[in-house]
Design a protein around this nucleic acid. Structure first.
Lengths: 144, 144
DNA sequence: GCTAGCTGTAACAGATGCTGTTACAGCTAG
DNA sequence: CTAGCTGTAACAGCATCTGTTACAGCTAGC
């Protein structure tokens, strides 16, 4: 698949917000975030909208509006971000139902569902081990 | 993303080939595999072509042609299949280069690359723990 | 109140990938 | 020689992603 970059965009936004917060600027507009990611502000608003629904960021409307982190960066894990922005399962099952007259066609979907569930759990366990604060630290180590 | 089902198709094909082998039929045509998956034979030939390049199946041309497993089913893991059919990385980085004048834009790609690498390794470790023989056993348990 | 400035969202275009299909050349057992 | 299958190109339909424009809705601060 042309793997989507939603997780990357969301993590980039949060990391930049965490650094700004550390520097004393609590609120960023979608345009300011977009300038770091180099994309359109609407793309950022869509991404931050997902994160807001998950309770990871807060938004303020009206004049002087903008976005801020709803939790300290060390309490936002990559799993939180993944769960907020990714809706499709990792591996899809058959698009159309297999041949149920074949024993493999009958039994393979529940079997694969179990194995895919195990893989998904391993993936999430790994994602849960890293926070936005970790990403920021690693980023600054390389970036300056 | 509309998650692709390539892994599912390939595992289904291999599982069906493993069962046929166990029943004494060593060689299957793409049409016979397609009948179990309920798709077009060309889709199966594309999938089995990937598996052949990875050395997991063998093909015979000419009259009486068809496909057979190149290794016993307990020695083909889901990781082998995943590596054979999936070319894109799990998570994509930015499509266009982020703003290099921002410390986050400068450092986030190598940082994310490392974290994504960890996740990829965890995924592969999990996939390596299951073989086609395991899938077949689980499938038959449900299917008949 | 007004207004400036930002958010939320719809709508659309272009690119890409996946599935499914048709068509056809190439190969080989018998 | 021929029947029957593989390998592959080409195409259609569909979905998704990114990027973009446009515009209504909200509110701090004057």
């Amino acid at each position: 698949m042309a793997a989507n970059s939603r997780l990357t965009i969301a993590v980039h936004a949060l990391t930049w917000m965490a650094l700004s917060e550390r520097r004393g600027r609590q609120v960023l507009t979608s345009g300011q975030v977009a300038a770091s990611v180099r994309t359109n502000p609407v793309v950022i608003r869509r991404s931050l909208g997902d994160l807001r629904q998950a309770g990871l960021v807060a938004v303020r409307h009206g004049a002087g509006a903008g976005w801020s982190l709803a939790r300290p960066p060390q309490e936002i894990t990559l799993l939180d971000v993944y769960a907020a922005v990714e809706r499709e399962p990792l591996f899809a099952l058959h698009h159309s139902e297999p041949n149920l007259e074949c024993p493999v066609g009958r039994g393979i979907r529940p079997a694969l569902g179990r194995f895919y569930g195990d893989v998904d759990r391993a993936l999430r366990r790994e994602l849960a081990g890293t926070s936005i604060a970790d990403v920021l630290d690693q980023t600054l180590e390389t970036g300056e």
